[in-house]
Design a protein around this nucleic acid. Structure first.
Lengths: 241, 241
DNA sequence: TTTTATTGTCTAAAAAATAGACAATAAATT
DNA sequence: AATTTATTGTCTATTTTTTAGACAATAAAA
Protein backbone atom coordinates (compact mmCIF):
# COMPACT_ATOMS: atom_id res chain seq x y z
CA UNK A 1 0.00 0.00 0.00
CA UNK A 2 1.17 3.45 -0.83
CA UNK A 3 2.07 5.37 2.30
CA UNK A 4 2.00 8.87 0.87
CA UNK A 5 -0.89 8.76 -1.52
CA UNK A 6 -1.04 12.34 -2.69
CA UNK A 7 -4.34 11.74 -4.48
CA UNK A 8 -6.33 11.32 -1.30
CA UNK A 9 -5.24 14.45 0.53
CA UNK A 10 -5.43 18.19 0.34
CA UNK A 11 -2.05 19.35 -0.88
CA UNK A 12 0.21 21.70 1.08
CA UNK A 13 -2.00 21.63 4.16
CA UNK A 14 -1.19 19.55 7.22
CA UNK A 15 -2.20 19.08 10.84
CA UNK A 16 0.14 18.67 13.80
CA UNK A 17 -0.95 17.65 17.28
CA UNK A 18 0.54 18.76 20.59
CA UNK A 19 -0.62 16.19 23.14
CA UNK A 20 0.07 17.18 26.71
CA UNK A 21 0.21 14.52 29.36
CA UNK A 22 0.95 14.66 33.05
CA UNK A 23 2.83 12.31 35.34
CA UNK A 24 5.08 12.56 38.39
CA UNK A 25 4.29 16.24 38.75
CA UNK A 26 5.71 16.91 35.30
CA UNK A 27 4.06 18.11 32.14
CA UNK A 28 4.97 16.00 29.13
CA UNK A 29 4.44 16.11 25.39
CA UNK A 30 3.93 13.18 23.05
CA UNK A 31 6.62 13.10 20.38
CA UNK A 32 7.37 10.54 17.72
CA UNK A 33 10.74 9.49 16.41
CA UNK A 34 10.33 9.05 12.70
CA UNK A 35 11.48 5.82 11.13
CA UNK A 36 14.52 7.07 9.21
CA UNK A 37 18.20 6.30 8.86
CA UNK A 38 19.03 9.07 11.25
CA UNK A 39 16.63 9.98 14.01
CA UNK A 40 14.09 12.74 13.42
CA UNK A 41 11.72 13.92 16.12
CA UNK A 42 8.35 15.35 15.24
CA UNK A 43 4.88 16.04 16.58
CA UNK A 44 2.30 13.50 15.45
CA UNK A 45 0.95 14.97 12.24
CA UNK A 46 -0.59 14.17 8.92
CA UNK A 47 -2.77 15.33 6.08
CA UNK A 48 -6.44 16.03 5.47
CA UNK A 49 -8.51 13.73 3.32
CA UNK A 50 -10.74 15.29 0.71
CA UNK A 51 -13.92 14.03 2.31
CA UNK A 52 -13.24 14.82 5.96
CA UNK A 53 -13.46 17.99 8.05
CA UNK A 54 -10.33 19.30 9.71
CA UNK A 55 -11.39 18.42 13.27
CA UNK A 56 -12.21 14.93 12.13
CA UNK A 57 -8.87 14.76 10.32
CA UNK A 58 -7.02 15.80 13.47
CA UNK A 59 -8.68 12.95 15.40
CA UNK A 60 -7.88 10.40 12.73
CA UNK A 61 -4.29 11.55 12.38
CA UNK A 62 -3.75 11.35 16.12
CA UNK A 63 -5.16 7.85 16.22
CA UNK A 64 -3.15 6.70 13.22
CA UNK A 65 0.10 8.03 14.58
CA UNK A 66 -0.33 7.28 18.29
CA UNK A 67 -3.26 4.93 18.73
CA UNK A 68 -5.03 7.46 20.98
CA UNK A 69 -8.79 7.34 20.48
CA UNK A 70 -11.61 9.71 21.35
CA UNK A 71 -9.37 12.59 22.37
CA UNK A 72 -10.91 16.04 22.21
CA UNK A 73 -8.53 18.17 20.18
CA UNK A 74 -8.73 21.91 19.80
CA UNK A 75 -7.17 23.95 17.05
CA UNK A 76 -5.06 26.80 18.36
CA UNK A 77 -2.91 28.32 15.61
CA UNK A 78 -1.99 28.05 11.96
CA UNK A 79 1.68 27.96 11.06
CA UNK A 80 2.28 29.17 7.54
CA UNK A 81 5.64 30.84 7.04
CA UNK A 82 6.67 31.33 3.43
CA UNK A 83 9.42 28.71 3.44
CA UNK A 84 7.82 26.18 5.71
CA UNK A 85 9.27 23.13 3.98
CA UNK A 86 10.02 19.80 5.59
CA UNK A 87 13.66 19.61 4.56
CA UNK A 88 14.53 17.13 7.30
CA UNK A 89 12.01 14.47 6.33
CA UNK A 90 12.60 15.00 2.64
CA UNK A 91 16.33 14.48 3.11
CA UNK A 92 15.64 11.35 5.13
CA UNK A 93 13.29 10.05 2.45
CA UNK A 94 15.83 10.46 -0.33
CA UNK A 95 18.17 8.04 1.42
CA UNK A 96 15.30 5.56 1.69
CA UNK A 97 13.84 6.23 -1.69
CA UNK A 98 15.03 3.15 -3.58
CA UNK A 99 14.11 0.75 -0.82
CA UNK A 100 10.64 2.28 -0.38
CA UNK A 101 9.93 2.63 -4.06
CA UNK A 102 10.65 -1.10 -4.38
CA UNK A 103 8.20 -1.85 -1.61
CA UNK A 104 5.61 0.28 -3.38
CA UNK A 105 4.99 2.62 -0.45
CA UNK A 106 6.59 5.61 -2.11
CA UNK A 107 6.76 6.92 -5.65
CA UNK A 108 8.06 9.95 -7.47
CA UNK A 109 4.87 11.97 -7.27
CA UNK A 110 4.64 11.27 -3.55
CA UNK A 111 8.15 12.60 -3.12
CA UNK A 112 7.36 15.73 -5.07
CA UNK A 113 4.34 16.35 -2.95
CA UNK A 114 6.23 16.09 0.33
CA UNK A 115 8.93 18.46 -0.91
CA UNK A 116 6.43 21.29 -1.17
CA UNK A 117 5.80 24.12 1.20
CA UNK A 118 3.10 23.27 3.78
CA UNK A 119 0.75 25.27 5.94
CA UNK A 120 -0.01 23.43 9.17
CA UNK A 121 -2.95 23.71 11.54
CA UNK A 122 -1.89 23.18 15.15
CA UNK A 123 -4.18 21.19 17.44
CA UNK A 124 -3.66 20.46 21.11
CA UNK A 125 -5.17 18.22 23.76
CA UNK A 126 -4.60 16.99 27.30
CA UNK A 127 -4.69 13.40 28.41
CA UNK A 128 -4.14 11.33 31.51
CA UNK A 129 -0.88 9.50 30.99
CA UNK A 130 -1.87 6.75 33.39
CA UNK A 131 -4.80 5.65 31.25
CA UNK A 132 -3.17 6.44 27.91
CA UNK A 133 -0.89 4.03 26.14
CA UNK A 134 0.47 5.39 22.87
CA UNK A 135 1.12 2.87 20.13
CA UNK A 136 3.56 3.82 17.43
CA UNK A 137 2.60 3.38 13.78
CA UNK A 138 4.76 1.87 11.06
CA UNK A 139 5.89 5.38 10.18
CA UNK A 140 7.66 5.77 13.49
CA UNK A 141 10.42 4.17 15.50
CA UNK A 142 8.77 5.25 18.72
CA UNK A 143 6.13 7.50 20.20
CA UNK A 144 7.03 8.70 23.66
CA UNK A 145 6.42 11.24 26.37
CA UNK A 146 9.05 13.94 26.81
CA UNK A 147 9.22 16.42 29.63
CA UNK A 148 8.04 19.74 28.25
CA UNK A 149 11.19 21.35 29.60
CA UNK A 150 13.51 18.87 27.93
CA UNK A 151 12.17 18.41 24.44
CA UNK A 152 14.39 17.09 21.67
CA UNK A 153 15.02 19.35 18.72
CA UNK A 154 12.24 18.56 16.29
CA UNK A 155 11.76 19.09 12.58
CA UNK A 156 10.73 22.44 11.13
CA UNK A 157 8.97 24.70 13.61
CA UNK A 158 7.59 21.92 15.81
CA UNK A 159 9.38 23.16 18.94
CA UNK A 160 7.76 26.55 18.47
CA UNK A 161 4.42 24.82 17.97
CA UNK A 162 4.71 23.35 21.45
CA UNK A 163 5.56 26.72 22.98
CA UNK A 164 2.46 28.30 21.48
CA UNK A 165 0.26 25.36 22.41
CA UNK A 166 1.41 25.71 26.01
CA UNK A 167 0.52 29.39 26.01
CA UNK A 168 -2.95 28.54 24.73
CA UNK A 169 -3.31 25.79 27.30
CA UNK A 170 -2.51 28.19 30.12
CA UNK A 171 -5.02 30.73 28.84
CA UNK A 172 -7.80 28.17 28.52
CA UNK A 173 -7.11 25.92 31.49
CA UNK A 174 -9.71 27.37 33.86
CA UNK A 175 -12.19 28.56 31.27
CA UNK A 176 -12.53 25.18 29.61
CA UNK A 177 -11.98 22.99 32.68
CA UNK A 178 -9.53 20.86 30.74
CA UNK A 179 -7.14 20.32 33.62
CA UNK A 180 -9.16 17.45 35.02
CA UNK A 181 -8.57 15.46 31.85
CA UNK A 182 -5.01 15.05 33.01
CA UNK A 183 -5.95 13.45 36.31
CA UNK A 184 -7.11 9.96 37.16
CA UNK A 185 -10.74 9.20 38.01
CA UNK A 186 -10.29 10.28 41.63
CA UNK A 187 -7.63 12.58 42.95
CA UNK A 188 -6.66 14.72 45.90
CA UNK A 189 -6.57 18.48 45.96
CA UNK A 190 -2.81 18.34 46.25
CA UNK A 191 -2.68 16.46 42.97
CA UNK A 192 -4.73 19.15 41.28
CA UNK A 193 -2.42 21.80 42.65
CA UNK A 194 0.72 19.98 41.53
CA UNK A 195 -0.79 19.71 38.08
CA UNK A 196 -1.47 23.44 37.93
CA UNK A 197 2.02 24.14 39.17
CA UNK A 198 3.46 21.91 36.46
CA UNK A 199 1.44 23.58 33.73
CA UNK A 200 2.13 27.13 34.86
CA UNK A 201 5.61 26.36 36.14
CA UNK A 202 4.97 28.39 39.28
CA UNK A 203 3.81 27.72 42.86
CA UNK A 204 0.31 28.47 44.17
CA UNK A 205 -0.80 29.18 47.75
CA UNK A 206 -2.45 26.02 49.07
CA UNK A 207 -5.33 27.62 50.99
CA UNK A 208 -6.47 29.92 48.22
CA UNK A 209 -5.89 27.38 45.50
CA UNK A 210 -8.25 24.94 47.20
CA UNK A 211 -10.89 27.61 47.53
CA UNK A 212 -10.58 28.65 43.91
CA UNK A 213 -10.92 25.11 42.63
CA UNK A 214 -13.85 24.25 44.90
CA UNK A 215 -15.58 27.50 43.89
CA UNK A 216 -15.66 26.19 40.32
CA UNK A 217 -18.36 23.81 41.54
CA UNK A 218 -17.29 20.98 39.29
CA UNK A 219 -15.79 18.62 41.85
CA UNK A 220 -17.58 16.03 43.92
CA UNK A 221 -16.00 15.19 47.27
CA UNK A 222 -15.66 11.52 48.08
CA UNK A 223 -14.38 9.75 51.19
CA UNK A 224 -11.02 10.33 52.76
CA UNK A 225 -7.95 8.65 51.39
CA UNK A 226 -5.90 6.70 53.97
CA UNK A 227 -2.47 7.16 52.55
CA UNK A 228 -0.49 5.62 55.40
CA UNK A 229 1.31 8.91 55.81
CA UNK A 230 1.88 10.49 59.19
CA UNK A 231 -0.77 13.13 58.79
CA UNK A 232 -4.40 13.89 58.23
CA UNK A 233 -5.84 11.97 55.29
CA UNK A 234 -6.87 14.09 52.31
CA UNK A 235 -10.27 13.88 50.66
CA UNK A 236 -10.63 12.35 47.25
CA UNK A 237 -12.45 14.30 44.55
CA UNK A 238 -14.13 13.34 41.33
CA UNK A 239 -14.71 15.61 38.35
CA UNK A 240 -18.36 16.03 37.43
CA UNK A 241 -19.75 18.38 34.82
CA UNK B 1 -4.69 38.49 -17.52
CA UNK B 2 -6.00 35.37 -15.95
CA UNK B 3 -7.98 36.16 -12.85
CA UNK B 4 -7.95 32.73 -11.24
CA UNK B 5 -4.50 31.45 -12.02
CA UNK B 6 -4.48 28.17 -10.19
CA UNK B 7 -0.77 27.71 -10.79
CA UNK B 8 0.25 30.53 -8.50
CA UNK B 9 -1.70 29.54 -5.42
CA UNK B 10 -1.91 26.85 -2.81
CA UNK B 11 -4.93 24.77 -3.71
CA UNK B 12 -7.93 24.26 -1.46
CA UNK B 13 -6.70 26.78 1.10
CA UNK B 14 -8.09 30.29 1.34
CA UNK B 15 -8.11 33.32 3.60
CA UNK B 16 -11.14 35.41 4.51
CA UNK B 17 -11.00 38.74 6.32
CA UNK B 18 -13.49 40.16 8.79
CA UNK B 19 -12.81 43.89 8.91
CA UNK B 20 -14.63 45.68 11.68
CA UNK B 21 -15.21 49.38 11.42
CA UNK B 22 -16.97 51.82 13.65
CA UNK B 23 -19.13 54.84 12.87
CA UNK B 24 -22.18 56.55 14.33
CA UNK B 25 -22.00 54.39 17.45
CA UNK B 26 -22.43 51.29 15.33
CA UNK B 27 -20.10 48.41 14.66
CA UNK B 28 -19.82 47.58 10.97
CA UNK B 29 -18.27 44.91 8.83
CA UNK B 30 -16.73 45.31 5.41
CA UNK B 31 -18.50 43.12 2.87
CA UNK B 32 -18.15 42.89 -0.88
CA UNK B 33 -20.82 42.24 -3.42
CA UNK B 34 -19.32 39.95 -5.99
CA UNK B 35 -19.54 40.93 -9.62
CA UNK B 36 -22.05 38.30 -10.81
CA UNK B 37 -25.35 38.10 -12.64
CA UNK B 38 -27.18 37.81 -9.38
CA UNK B 39 -25.81 39.46 -6.28
CA UNK B 40 -23.57 37.46 -3.95
CA UNK B 41 -22.23 38.87 -0.72
CA UNK B 42 -18.95 37.68 0.71
CA UNK B 43 -16.13 38.61 3.04
CA UNK B 44 -13.04 39.87 1.25
CA UNK B 45 -11.01 36.75 0.64
CA UNK B 46 -8.48 35.13 -1.58
CA UNK B 47 -5.74 32.57 -1.94
CA UNK B 48 -2.17 32.12 -0.79
CA UNK B 49 0.71 32.44 -3.22
CA UNK B 50 3.36 29.77 -3.12
CA UNK B 51 6.08 32.16 -2.10
CA UNK B 52 4.30 34.15 0.61
CA UNK B 53 3.51 33.49 4.28
CA UNK B 54 -0.10 33.37 5.38
CA UNK B 55 -0.02 36.65 7.32
CA UNK B 56 1.53 38.34 4.33
CA UNK B 57 -1.11 36.75 2.09
CA UNK B 58 -3.88 38.06 4.31
CA UNK B 59 -2.52 41.60 3.99
CA UNK B 60 -2.18 41.34 0.24
CA UNK B 61 -5.66 39.87 -0.19
CA UNK B 62 -7.21 42.60 1.88
CA UNK B 63 -5.46 45.26 -0.15
CA UNK B 64 -6.38 43.65 -3.48
CA UNK B 65 -10.02 43.31 -2.59
CA UNK B 66 -10.59 46.51 -0.64
CA UNK B 67 -7.62 48.81 -1.19
CA UNK B 68 -6.91 48.90 2.56
CA UNK B 69 -3.18 49.09 3.23
CA UNK B 70 -1.05 48.44 6.28
CA UNK B 71 -3.83 46.91 8.35
CA UNK B 72 -2.76 44.63 11.17
CA UNK B 73 -4.70 41.41 10.72
CA UNK B 74 -4.85 38.59 13.21
CA UNK B 75 -5.79 35.01 12.47
CA UNK B 76 -8.52 33.72 14.75
CA UNK B 77 -9.97 30.45 13.45
CA UNK B 78 -9.76 27.91 10.66
CA UNK B 79 -12.97 26.87 8.96
CA UNK B 80 -12.69 23.44 7.44
CA UNK B 81 -15.94 21.53 7.32
CA UNK B 82 -15.95 18.46 5.07
CA UNK B 83 -18.21 19.96 2.41
CA UNK B 84 -17.04 23.51 2.52
CA UNK B 85 -17.54 24.21 -1.18
CA UNK B 86 -18.30 27.55 -2.74
CA UNK B 87 -21.44 26.48 -4.59
CA UNK B 88 -22.74 30.03 -4.86
CA UNK B 89 -19.74 31.51 -6.64
CA UNK B 90 -19.31 28.44 -8.81
CA UNK B 91 -22.90 28.65 -9.95
CA UNK B 92 -22.44 32.33 -10.67
CA UNK B 93 -19.29 31.62 -12.63
CA UNK B 94 -20.95 29.04 -14.86
CA UNK B 95 -23.36 31.65 -16.13
CA UNK B 96 -20.43 33.95 -16.88
CA UNK B 97 -18.16 31.25 -18.15
CA UNK B 98 -18.33 31.90 -21.89
CA UNK B 99 -17.97 35.63 -21.56
CA UNK B 100 -15.01 35.33 -19.20
CA UNK B 101 -13.30 32.57 -21.09
CA UNK B 102 -13.41 34.83 -24.16
CA UNK B 103 -11.81 37.63 -22.20
CA UNK B 104 -9.09 35.23 -21.10
CA UNK B 105 -9.66 35.77 -17.38
CA UNK B 106 -11.07 32.31 -16.79
CA UNK B 107 -10.37 28.86 -18.17
CA UNK B 108 -11.46 25.30 -17.57
CA UNK B 109 -8.74 24.44 -15.06
CA UNK B 110 -9.51 27.60 -13.10
CA UNK B 111 -13.15 26.54 -12.91
CA UNK B 112 -12.22 23.09 -11.70
CA UNK B 113 -10.03 24.54 -9.03
CA UNK B 114 -12.73 26.84 -7.66
CA UNK B 115 -15.24 23.98 -7.54
CA UNK B 116 -13.14 22.16 -4.96
CA UNK B 117 -13.59 21.97 -1.26
CA UNK B 118 -11.65 24.73 0.56
CA UNK B 119 -10.28 25.19 4.05
CA UNK B 120 -10.26 28.85 5.01
CA UNK B 121 -8.18 30.71 7.57
CA UNK B 122 -10.16 33.52 9.20
CA UNK B 123 -8.40 36.83 9.88
CA UNK B 124 -9.85 39.89 11.54
CA UNK B 125 -8.91 43.52 12.06
CA UNK B 126 -10.32 46.83 13.25
CA UNK B 127 -10.11 50.09 11.41
CA UNK B 128 -11.29 53.66 11.74
CA UNK B 129 -14.01 54.13 9.16
CA UNK B 130 -13.43 57.86 9.00
CA UNK B 131 -9.91 57.47 7.69
CA UNK B 132 -10.57 54.33 5.69
CA UNK B 133 -11.91 54.43 2.18
CA UNK B 134 -12.45 51.00 0.70
CA UNK B 135 -11.94 50.67 -3.04
CA UNK B 136 -13.60 47.78 -4.78
CA UNK B 137 -11.59 45.61 -7.15
CA UNK B 138 -12.67 44.43 -10.56
CA UNK B 139 -13.93 41.26 -8.94
CA UNK B 140 -16.62 43.13 -7.07
CA UNK B 141 -19.60 45.31 -7.72
CA UNK B 142 -19.12 47.06 -4.42
CA UNK B 143 -17.30 46.91 -1.11
CA UNK B 144 -19.31 48.44 1.69
CA UNK B 145 -19.82 48.70 5.41
CA UNK B 146 -22.77 46.82 6.86
CA UNK B 147 -24.07 47.10 10.39
CA UNK B 148 -22.94 43.98 12.24
CA UNK B 149 -26.52 43.46 13.35
CA UNK B 150 -27.94 43.65 9.84
CA UNK B 151 -25.62 41.66 7.65
CA UNK B 152 -26.75 40.31 4.32
CA UNK B 153 -26.77 36.56 3.87
CA UNK B 154 -23.34 35.73 2.56
CA UNK B 155 -21.89 32.79 0.70
CA UNK B 156 -20.92 29.57 2.47
CA UNK B 157 -20.23 30.03 6.18
CA UNK B 158 -19.21 33.69 5.98
CA UNK B 159 -21.96 34.83 8.35
CA UNK B 160 -20.70 32.36 10.95
CA UNK B 161 -17.17 33.62 10.35
CA UNK B 162 -18.27 37.09 11.43
CA UNK B 163 -19.92 35.75 14.58
CA UNK B 164 -16.75 33.99 15.64
CA UNK B 165 -14.57 36.95 14.76
CA UNK B 166 -16.73 39.15 16.97
CA UNK B 167 -16.34 36.74 19.87
CA UNK B 168 -12.57 36.85 19.43
CA UNK B 169 -12.63 40.62 19.19
CA UNK B 170 -14.48 40.91 22.47
CA UNK B 171 -12.06 38.56 24.21
CA UNK B 172 -9.00 40.45 22.96
CA UNK B 173 -10.22 44.04 23.01
CA UNK B 174 -8.60 45.10 26.29
CA UNK B 175 -5.66 42.74 26.20
CA UNK B 176 -4.46 43.92 22.82
CA UNK B 177 -5.58 47.55 23.03
CA UNK B 178 -7.11 47.30 19.58
CA UNK B 179 -10.14 49.44 20.35
CA UNK B 180 -8.27 52.65 19.74
CA UNK B 181 -7.67 51.66 16.12
CA UNK B 182 -11.34 52.30 15.55
CA UNK B 183 -11.21 55.89 16.74
CA UNK B 184 -9.93 59.03 15.07
CA UNK B 185 -6.63 60.64 16.10
CA UNK B 186 -8.23 62.46 19.01
CA UNK B 187 -11.41 61.49 20.76
CA UNK B 188 -13.45 62.02 23.88
CA UNK B 189 -14.01 59.50 26.63
CA UNK B 190 -17.64 59.30 25.65
CA UNK B 191 -16.62 58.19 22.19
CA UNK B 192 -14.49 55.41 23.65
CA UNK B 193 -17.40 54.30 25.79
CA UNK B 194 -19.84 54.31 22.88
CA UNK B 195 -17.36 52.22 20.93
CA UNK B 196 -17.13 49.67 23.72
CA UNK B 197 -20.88 49.61 24.02
CA UNK B 198 -21.22 49.00 20.30
CA UNK B 199 -18.70 46.15 20.34
CA UNK B 200 -20.11 44.46 23.44
CA UNK B 201 -23.70 45.44 22.71
CA UNK B 202 -24.23 46.42 26.33
CA UNK B 203 -24.06 49.59 28.45
CA UNK B 204 -21.19 50.48 30.80
CA UNK B 205 -21.24 52.72 33.86
CA UNK B 206 -19.70 56.04 32.90
CA UNK B 207 -17.71 56.75 36.07
CA UNK B 208 -16.09 53.35 36.31
CA UNK B 209 -15.57 53.03 32.60
CA UNK B 210 -13.52 56.20 32.56
CA UNK B 211 -11.43 54.98 35.45
CA UNK B 212 -10.79 51.64 33.82
CA UNK B 213 -9.68 53.17 30.54
CA UNK B 214 -7.46 55.77 32.18
CA UNK B 215 -5.90 53.07 34.38
CA UNK B 216 -4.66 51.39 31.21
CA UNK B 217 -2.15 54.26 31.00
CA UNK B 218 -2.17 54.44 27.24
CA UNK B 219 -4.06 57.68 26.73
CA UNK B 220 -2.65 61.18 26.67
CA UNK B 221 -5.02 63.94 27.73
CA UNK B 222 -5.14 66.99 25.49
CA UNK B 223 -7.03 70.28 25.81
CA UNK B 224 -10.76 70.55 26.24
CA UNK B 225 -13.09 70.32 23.29
CA UNK B 226 -15.55 73.19 22.91
CA UNK B 227 -18.43 71.38 21.38
CA UNK B 228 -20.95 74.19 21.46
CA UNK B 229 -23.17 72.02 23.62
CA UNK B 230 -24.85 73.36 26.71
CA UNK B 231 -22.56 71.61 29.15
CA UNK B 232 -19.05 71.17 30.38
CA UNK B 233 -16.60 70.55 27.55
CA UNK B 234 -15.03 67.09 27.51
CA UNK B 235 -11.29 66.52 27.28
CA UNK B 236 -9.79 65.15 24.12
CA UNK B 237 -7.51 62.14 24.37
CA UNK B 238 -4.88 60.69 22.11
CA UNK B 239 -3.75 57.07 22.04
CA UNK B 240 -0.05 56.63 22.78
CA UNK B 241 1.78 53.37 23.27
C1' DT C 1 1.40 10.77 75.53
C1' DT C 2 3.83 13.85 72.74
C1' DT C 3 5.59 15.21 68.41
C1' DT C 4 5.48 15.82 63.45
C1' DA C 5 3.70 16.64 58.94
C1' DT C 6 -0.08 17.65 56.21
C1' DT C 7 -4.99 18.83 55.34
C1' DG C 8 -9.16 21.65 55.60
C1' DT C 9 -11.04 25.87 56.83
C1' DC C 10 -11.60 30.15 58.97
C1' DT C 11 -10.63 35.14 59.40
C1' DA C 12 -8.09 39.40 58.51
C1' DA C 13 -6.08 42.33 55.27
C1' DA C 14 -5.43 44.08 50.78
C1' DA C 15 -6.93 44.95 46.22
C1' DA C 16 -10.30 45.48 42.68
C1' DA C 17 -14.84 46.29 40.99
C1' DT C 18 -19.25 48.58 41.51
C1' DA C 19 -22.46 52.13 42.97
C1' DG C 20 -23.65 56.68 44.58
C1' DA C 21 -22.84 61.49 44.99
C1' DC C 22 -21.43 66.04 43.76
C1' DA C 23 -18.75 69.92 42.00
C1' DA C 24 -17.39 72.04 37.47
C1' DT C 25 -18.78 74.05 33.31
C1' DA C 26 -20.80 75.78 28.79
C1' DA C 27 -24.74 77.19 26.85
C1' DA C 28 -29.79 77.98 27.10
C1' DT C 29 -33.38 80.11 29.59
C1' DT C 30 -35.42 83.45 32.38
C1' DA D 1 -27.16 88.97 35.13
C1' DA D 2 -28.92 85.21 37.53
C1' DT D 3 -30.82 80.72 37.07
C1' DT D 4 -31.48 76.41 34.90
C1' DT D 5 -30.07 72.37 32.28
C1' DA D 6 -27.22 68.77 30.53
C1' DT D 7 -22.99 66.57 30.63
C1' DT D 8 -18.25 65.79 32.33
C1' DG D 9 -14.70 64.63 35.69
C1' DT D 10 -13.77 62.91 40.05
C1' DC D 11 -14.29 61.59 44.69
C1' DT D 12 -15.92 58.46 48.28
C1' DA D 13 -18.50 54.62 50.11
C1' DT D 14 -19.76 50.03 49.41
C1' DT D 15 -19.37 45.56 47.81
C1' DT D 16 -16.86 41.85 45.95
C1' DT D 17 -12.73 39.38 45.06
C1' DT D 18 -8.07 38.14 45.97
C1' DT D 19 -4.31 37.33 48.99
C1' DA D 20 -2.11 36.36 53.38
C1' DG D 21 -2.06 34.55 57.96
C1' DA D 22 -3.58 31.51 61.48
C1' DC D 23 -5.21 27.40 63.61
C1' DA D 24 -7.77 23.14 64.55
C1' DA D 25 -8.07 18.26 62.84
C1' DT D 26 -5.84 14.04 62.05
C1' DA D 27 -2.85 9.84 61.14
C1' DA D 28 1.22 7.94 62.17
C1' DA D 29 5.87 8.25 64.22
C1' DA D 30 8.57 9.19 68.22
Amino acid sequence: MKLFDEESFIHQLSIDCVIFGYKDAELKVLISRINMKQPLWALPGGFIRHEEGIDQAAKRILEERTGLKDIYLEQYHVFGGPNRINHEVFKGLTTLRDEWVDKGILDESGMQWLAKRFVSIGYYALVDINTTHPQKSELDDSVDWYNVKELPTMIMDHNDMVVQALETLRLNLDRKLIAFNLLPETFTMKEVQELYEAIFDQPFARNNFQKKILDMNVLERLEKKFTGAANKAPYLYRFQK
